[in-house]
Amino acid sequence: MSESSAGPGTLGAMKRLWTPAWIARHVAMVVLVTAFLALGWWQVSRAAAGNAISWGYAVEWPIFAGFVVFVWWREVRHALRGAEAGPSAAVGEAPDAGDPTVVERAEAVEAAGVRPRPGIGRPVRVTRTVGGHGEEDAELAAYNRYLSWLNANPGAKPGDYPG
């Protein structure tokens, strides 16, 4: 792929896939796929020799190999997509509003009419209250009185509660 046809950002993104960590991932993928396919072939030979249960394993091992390829491909696409977003899109970094490259990128995105994808935020916690507007649940109030009594009488046993 030449630099003119790939664009300036694509080659930089491809270089990210040749770091020591990515080389280890590529090697692991090749080793696992080769091993899983070899195990599948071994199971086919066992099944042909009369071991009926090996037919199931002969189907399973190539599926495992396909799953490894799927996960590897998904990670490659995720890495390339992250490289296209630029260096300020790294995990844990907030873009600096005063940085001219961030401002220029934001202006270019607005001019192109492209809406940026929202990031994954923290989950929203919803608290539920029992009862309506100011109404207190009688059972909850009795339990709270019981807890208050236990707190006021630390040596007491639950069976000593007068209420």
Rank of each mutant, 00 (worst) to 15 (best):
1 M>K: 06
2 S>T: 14
3 E>Q: 15
4 S>I: 14
4 S>D: 09
6 A>Q: 10
7 G>Q: 01
7 G>D: 01
10 T>Q: 11
11 L>P: 02
12 G>L: 12
13 A>R: 02
13 A>F: 06
14 M>V: 13
15 K>I: 09
19 T>C: 13
20 P>W: 07
22 W>G: 05
23 I>A: 09
23 I>N: 05
24 A>L: 05
24 A>F: 09
25 R>C: 06
25 R>L: 15
25 R>T: 08
27 V>A: 11
28 A>M: 04
31 V>C: 12
36 F>P: 00
37 L>Q: 12
40 G>P: 00
40 G>C: 03
44 V>T: 14
46 R>Y: 01
47 A>W: 02
48 A>P: 02
50 G>K: 02
52 A>N: 06
53 I>T: 05
54 S>N: 07
55 W>N: 03
55 W>G: 02
55 W>V: 05
55 W>S: 03
56 G>N: 04
56 G>M: 11
58 A>L: 00
60 E>G: 12
61 W>Y: 15
63 I>P: 02
65 A>Y: 10
66 G>W: 04
71 V>H: 02
71 V>S: 12
71 V>F: 05
73 W>H: 14
80 L>P: 04
83 A>S: 13
83 A>Q: 08
87 P>Y: 11
89 A>Q: 07
91 V>S: 06
92 G>P: 02
93 E>Y: 10
93 E>Q: 08
96 D>H: 00
98 G>T: 01
99 D>F: 00
101 T>Q: 11
101 T>G: 04
103 V>T: 00
106 A>T: 11
106 A>P: 03
108 A>C: 05
112 A>H: 07
113 G>H: 11
113 G>W: 08
115 R>W: 10
118 P>H: 08
118 P>K: 14
121 G>H: 10
123 P>R: 13
127 T>S: 05
128 R>Y: 07
128 R>Q: 10
128 R>F: 10
130 V>D: 12
132 G>E: 10
133 H>C: 10
134 G>M: 09
135 E>Q: 15
137 D>P: 03
140 L>S: 04
145 R>I: 04
146 Y>K: 09
147 L>K: 15
148 S>P: 00
149 W>S: 05
151 N>K: 15
151 N>Y: 09
151 N>M: 08
156 A>R: 09
156 A>K: 03
157 K>W: 05
158 P>Y: 12
161 Y>A: 04
161 Y>K: 13
161 Y>F: 15
161 Y>N: 12
162 P>C: 09
